[in-house]
């Protein structure tokens, strides 16, 4: 006689590819906590995971697609958004999430970002911002604060970074928020809210990169960056996005900045289809 032991499968585990663990992220990295928030948000949202598609680009955050047990696409550098656009328009019933890094979405993919926001594509973007390119070894990027050190700004960064919420809000996003991974509960709820809301929802998530950016900028441990978030962050829901730019000294304004209504691209597509069909029936 054989006996079987039944182990309760935890819901959250069912959304992870456990056969791929351990993951590749460094100790203290912010991506793991952000993924945790996302997984719990999927649970909170009540959405059917079979109908969620997750798309990532390239980089440390680009690896998220490989660890979630959803239909998931690890695409090319910067191109998660146009790939997701094809998924969304090919099957508008899907709930499409793009989970990628600041370099991927804002530098090489920057043009796609503003145009996807302009069209109000029905998708949720989770942009993990750790202020540098991690996978390639800690180079400066379009979100690196002025004067910060990196492996390609050894004398201090001379470029002014994007104020990311301001950029996407100006481009037409209908939901814009920023949290740090320290704000785990708010982030989780924000992701759930964004996924349920139709239209282009963008959440900037600040997360530590102790191995590279942190080490070069006096935060050598993940906890150092978490302390920094704790000290410097200010929750200001409804803040004007133009006032939420980030500097090395802080403050870090977090909260939900934009939550407006505008027809999604698919709703506009349906108008076109209706007009064409009307012509057909003439």
């Amino acid at each position: 006689m054989t006996s079987t032991t039944k182990v309760e499968e935890r819901t959250l585990d069912s959304l992870l590819r456990l056969d791929r663990l351990p993951h590749i992220w460094c100790p203290g990295c912010g991506i793991g906590p952000a993924v945790g928030c996302f997984i719990r948000a999927v649970e909170d949202s009540g959405l059917n995971p079979d109908k969620i598609a997750l798309v990532s680009g390239i980089g440390c955050t680009g690896r998220v697609a490989g660890y979630v047990k959803l239909d998931s696409f690890h695409t090319t550098h910067g191109r998660a958004l146009p790939f997701a656009t094809g998924l969304n328009l090919g099957n508008p019933d899907l709930n499409v999430v793009v989970f990628s890094g600041d370099g991927d979405l804002l530098a090489i993919g920057g043009n796609h970002l503003i145009h996807a926001a302009r069209r109000n594509m029905d998708m949720t973007i989770i942009c993990l911002n750790n202020f540098n390119y991690g996978m390639t070894g800690g180079q400066m990027g379009p979100t690196t604060p002025l004067d910060a050190r990196s492996n390609t700004s050894p004398y201090g960064n001379i470029e002014y970074p994007f104020n990311v919420p301001y950029l996407v809000a100006a481009s037409g996003a209908t939901y814009v928020a920023r949290w740090t991974v320290l704000h785990a509960r708010q982030l989780e709820w924000s992701i759930a809210e964004a996924m349920i809301k139709p239209g282009f929802s963008f959440i900037e998530v600040l997360g530590p990169c102790p191995t590279l950016y942190g080490r070069m900028n006096k935060q050598p441990k993940g906890m150092d960056t978490m302390h920094h978030y704790q000290e410097k962050s200010v929750v200001k829901n409804g803040a004007d996005p133009k006032d939420v730019g980030i500097t090395a000294e802080g403050p870090i304004v977090v909260g939900k900045f934009v939550d407006i209504e505008r027809p999604t691209f698919w709703e506009q597509c349906k108008l076109v289809i209706d007009r064409a069909q009307a012509k057909k029936n003439e």
Partner: peptide, 18 residues
Amino acid sequence: MEDEIASMNAVLGASWTG
């Protein structure tokens, strides 16, 4: 799309929806 890079990717995404 905004360029041909985006066009090619949107085509790939759409193909995966069948």
